[in-house]
């Protein structure tokens, strides 16, 4: 179980690295918090199991980056996030509603101001989301490659 909080710019390279290492995508998940949207990517590996969680934070009006060109399976997961939260994924080829009717202009999982919690509130021991620690991922990558 590894947990990495990375900045949005670092996401695509990181996902590419995981792709090279033979990880598969479990899911893409979005959490609406006071700071914006926390995107959580879960990866796992067939041969040496252990979940890798990549998380990145985008503000309410920021666009996320698609990873569907690296993992085509992310296509639907991202469409689902778009459905539920209205998060746009830059570069997504077919960002149309997946589970909700196309004429519904609502994003049911958005939380109103009152219900929103700060990230530090829901993830007490994960302060890193607001202060991304990209090096940690690189370090892990290096040790991982060395072990091989």
């Amino acid at each position: 179980m590894k947990n990495f909080c990375i900045s949005l710019d670092k996401l695509i390279p990181a996902v590419k690295e995981l792709d090279n290492l033979g990880y598969f995508l479990e899911d893409v998940c979005c959490v609406h918090v006071k700071e914006g949207f926390e995107l959580v990517y879960h990866f796992d590996h067939w041969d040496n199991p252990g979940r890798i969680t990549l998380r990145t934070l985008i503000s309410d009006d920021q666009q996320a980056e698609t990873i569907s060109h690296i993992f085509p399976g992310a296509d639907w997961h991202e469409r689902e996030c778009y459905d539920f939260f209205g998060v746009h994924f830059k570069g997504h080829k077919n960002l149309i509603p997946l589970l909700l009717p196309p004429d519904l202009n609502e994003h049911p999982l958005l939380k109103n101001k009152k219900k929103q919690k700060e990230l530090s509130h829901i993830l007490p021991d994960c302060e890193c989301v607001t202060a991304p620690q990209d090096e940690e991922f690189d370090n892990w990558l290096n040790t991982f490659n060395k072990d091989k």
């Binding site: 990880y23 598969f24 899911d27 399976g73």
Partner: peptide
């Protein structure tokens, strides 16, 4: 293909 799409279970 299985890996890219995250297929699991009997399919994999």
């Amino acid at each position: 293909t299985c890996r890219k799409y995250g297929a699991t279970g009997p399919v994999l």
